[in-house]
Write a protein that binds this DNA or RNA. Structure first.
Length: 590
DNA sequence: ACGCTCGCATCAGGTGGGAAACGG
DNA sequence: CCGTTTCCCACCTGATGCGAGCGT
């Protein structure tokens, strides 16, 4: 897949059948061809970008299987034929069980075309399992053979925020990092088994896109080529390793330079004005890195619809531009009213920026919200109203495909309704379907209290993997310079013991599952999940502002300020241990 | 003397903006 | 002509090295 140069033989089903063991892409190192094995054939340069669902046991026109699928808003993923190899999981929100492989070859073929084609409205995915219901097989994570991993999208609120406006990612010749970048937490892996973890980016639809009249519209057919696999540099590694820490793909770069030989292992070659859907793949391998596909359970794939983006060489939607500027610490210099907003606190603060901006902007520090739940809206409202929707914008607010937010930013909120997602797909149906609701959530303290205590509150706080918190917890990219700036006495416990694998998930999340399952009709409503997510991202902003405002208001010594920060982190860590992953909805497949 | 912490300076690299270049 | 891509710029983050200060 890697650009087709990976030769279909590598992925031919015949070969798959013959070779139970294949070289892991990680083994291939920088060899693009190695990675290519993990992209679907047909994803190659001159190959079709998707496979007609002819093999599908359930055609798109079949009775809407979406009824059973929660949170399937983002539309079809035009999986290449590799789908059979690495089928995308259902889009189940922020916590995903793997699509995995069905137990049989037939099952594979069933999954392979599990993507609805074209702009066909309605359900976008075939049933998650042969049972026809993703609900029927819901199980909680368990140890032992056959267990499935659960994947948590760490910075989902931020992704959702971008997704509302149709995320755009800049691609350049030398490569541009993604922002937001992909960051996951994984649970349910075998502690001692070895896994390769990698991201594949597939076309989300067969169209070429153009930004016209403040909207993204299709124009022509998409082309498909290039390396679209990025293997996590720590692959292969043990399940314990992957579950110990946040898995970040911050180093992943997007380029449009097909001929690049520079840092190919970090580069992902995309095409401008095409819509892409990243996928996470977890492949069990042998200790030497050789892939073992003898068992279906050993390859698991996850797709988060909010990760969809359109590759561009220059930002088209000013909403996206503003979001990038506001949330990406590297773009701080473009915050025109930054001074007026945050003033001197930026100069006075003790804590280094890396632990500030990333945490404040990228991640929803849920625990902090629970500490100040009553102030959030206040902070939101204190943000300069023209910051996001000022009159200077070349593109009106209506650019936003989905979120015509009101000026006050608080009277109208958005959440996902699986109903609309399933049945009312449009040309932009690949986006999360957001529906406004009047701000009842402000009184929903419980969802806040519980769901805001997210995993990401801790290690995800370091938006970059080298952040002191990640470093402390996982020794990932440890830097002495940073470590010494963080109190070593902090009882920081960003994640539960790897040996437990989100031990509390089962008990604490199950009620939530029930809650989401019972929803309306046969749908697995993602209302709770999405609502909380939307809320969280709102709170992320408000908290960001809150923290900055606190700095501003605090006249005491800097040490006081940093002490308060430490308290927040401390509390966050406690909260995490008690409600790991409660932030997200939780789904498991049979 | 030694080890550690801290502050500062330096530099590489990541940002988006904007103008110029390119191509259909 | 218009849309897209490329390049350069200023600004910022993050990593690193160095020396001063302090405690043992």
């Amino acid at each position: 897949m890697l650009g087709g140069e990976g030769e279909s033989s590598a992925f031919s089903s015949a070969k798959e059948a013959a070779d139970d063991r294949r070289k892991s892409p990680a083994v291939g190192g920088d060899d693009p061809a190695a990675g290519s094995r993990y992209t679907a054939h047909g994803m190659g340069a001159d190959r079709s970008y998707y496979i007609p669902p002819t093999v599908s046991k359930q055609s798109p026109e079949a009775p809407n299987p979406c009824s059973f699928i929660p949170y399937t808003p983002s539309g079809t993923v035009y999986a290449a034929s590799s789908a059979g190899r690495y089928p995308s999981s259902l889009h189940l929100g922020s916590v995903l069980p793997p699509a995995g492989f069905p137990p049989s070859a037939a099952g594979r073929s069933h999954f392979s075309p599990a993507y609805q084609l074209g702009q066909s409205p309605g359900c976008i995915y075939t049933p998650y399992s042969s049972s026809g219901s993703a609900l029927g097989g819901i199980t909680l994570p368990s140890a032992g053979p056959g267990m499935r991993a659960q994947v948590y999208l760490c910075n989902r609120p931020l992704w959702l925020k971008f997704h509302r406006h149709q995320t755009e990612m800049i691609i350049t010749k030398q490569g541009r990092r993604m922002f937001p970048f992909l960051s996951f937490n994984i649970a349910g892996l075998n502690l001692s088994a070895h896994y390769n973890v990698f991201v594949e980016v597939v076309l989300a639809d067969p169209n070429h896109w153009r930004f016209q009249g403040g909207k993204w519209v299709t124009c022509g057919k998409a082309d498909n080529s290039g390396n679209k696999v990025y293997i996590h540099p720590e692959s292969p590694n043990t399940g314990a390793h992957w579950m110990r820490q946040e898995i970040s793909f911050s180093k992943l770069k997007l380029t449009n330079n097909k001929g690049t030989n520079h840092n190919t292992s970090q580069m992902m070659v995309l095409q401008s004005l095409h819509k892409y859907q990243p996928r996470l793949h977890i492949v069990e391998v042998t200790e030497d890195g050789a892939e073992d596909i003898s068992s279906d359970v050993k390859t698991q794939s996850f797709t988060f619809p909010e990760n969809q983006f359109i590759a561009v060489t220059a930002y088209q939607n000013t909403d996206i531009t503003q979001l990038k500027i506001d949330h990406n610490p590297f773009a701080k210099g473009f915050r025109d009213n930054y001074d007026s907003m945050y003033t001197a606190q930026e100069n006075d603060r003790l804590t280094p920026s890396p632990t500030d901006s990333p945490r404040a902007h990228q991640i929803v520090p849920g625990a902090r919200y629970t500490m100040q739940p009553l102030f959030q809206d206040q902070f939101v409202n204190n943000l300069p109203q023209n910051r996001f929707y000022n009159s200077e914008r070349a593109v009106p607010q209506t650019n936003s495909l989905l979120s015509p937010q009101t000026e006050d930013g608080s009277s109208q909120r958005w959440f996902v309704t699986s109903m609309q997602q399933g049945g009312n797909g449009t040309s932009t149906g690949s986006k999360l379907d957001l529906t406004p609701y009047e701000g009842e959530y402000s009184s929903s303290l419980l969802p806040y209290g519980i769901k805001s205590l997210s995993v990401q509150t801790s290690h995800a706080l370091g938006y970059y993997p080298d952040s002191p918190f990640t470093t402390m917890s996982a020794g990932w990219g440890s830097r002495a310079a940073y470590q010494r700036k963080v109190s070593p006495s902090l009882p920081w416990s960003p994640r539960p013991s790897p040996t437990t694998g989100f031990p509390e998930d089962s008990n604490k999340v199950k009620p939530q599952i029930d809650e989401e399952v019972n929803g309306s009709g046969s749908l697995i409503s993602s209302w709770t999940d999405t609502q909380s997510s939307a809320l969280s991202l709102e709170k992320a902003d408000s908290y960001s502002a809150a923290c900055k405002r606190r700095r501003l208001s605090l006249n005491g010594p800097c040490t006081e300020d940093s002490a308060s920060d430490i308290k927040c982190e401390d509390l966050a860590s406690v909260a995490i241990n008690s409600s790991m992953a409660a932030y997200y909805s939780f789904y498991t497949n049979p």
